[in-house]
């Protein structure tokens, strides 16, 4: 299953000091893709909004904005979450990884290469989120069964219907890693 971790809240030490913040903008430090950013955000800002609107990391997509489609999937300390369901203030010291930070600038991750090779892309709007979940799957389960891949992406909606090619791409990427 896609791990949704809003319950996995930062411990008290990472919370803003006052119990009540806002409604005005408050300062926030986010660690994203290995860089530390200081932002000013209003407290209701989601992580997805902060990434897209303040950091211009628009590879993270918002489609349903309520945790139903997983297009906004990023990693918090390596675990995939729907960034539309996490307040930016909740992130605390955890490291955020987005599609832009998956690899170094030039290289493609084997899963990304397999998505291209197997044409696991149509319109491409759900694709970054799917890739974040699939790479996370391979990190914890290097040789997943097809069933495990289906389970790992079961929270993702793809209206174009790329699922069959996503399955074959991830299976192939797992084989490549093995080789």
């Amino acid at each position: 299953m896609l791990e949704k971790t809003p319950s996995d809240r930062p411990d008290a030490a990472q919370r803003p000091e006052a119990d009540t913040v806002g409604p005005h903008a408050v300062p926030l430090t986010l660690r994203v893709n290995g860089m530390t950013h200081t932002l000013s955000i209003t407290p209701e800002t989601t992580l997805a909004q902060a990434l897209r609107e303040q950091l211009d990391l628009t590879g993270t997509k918002i489609a349903c904005d309520r945790g139903a489609c997983s297009a906004c999937t990023v990693w918090l300390d390596g675990a995939p979450v729907c960034s539309c369901m996490v307040l930016a203030l909740e992130v605390g010291a955890r490291e955020v990884t987005t599609i832009e930070g998956l690899t170094d600038r030039e290289a493609l991750h084997p899963v990304q290469a397999a998505f291209i090779e197997h044409d696991a892309i149509q319109c491409g709007f759900c694709t970054p989120g799917l890739i974040m979940s699939c790479v996370a799957l391979l990190k914890r389960t290097p040789h997943p069964s097809e069933h495990e891949i289906r389970a790992a992406i079961s929270g993702h909606l793809c209206r174009c219907g790329t699922y069959p090619h996503v399955l074959s791409a991830v299976l192939a990427a797992a084989r490549t890693e093995e080789a």
Binding site: T58, K61, I99, L108, Q112, I116, G124, T127, P128
Partner: peptide
């Protein structure tokens, strides 16, 4: 494909 798998593709919402 490369633009779409890396998040670089520009959609209108971007």
């Amino acid at each position: 494909g490369p633009a779409k798998v890396t998040g670089r593709a520009t959609f209108t919402v971007d």
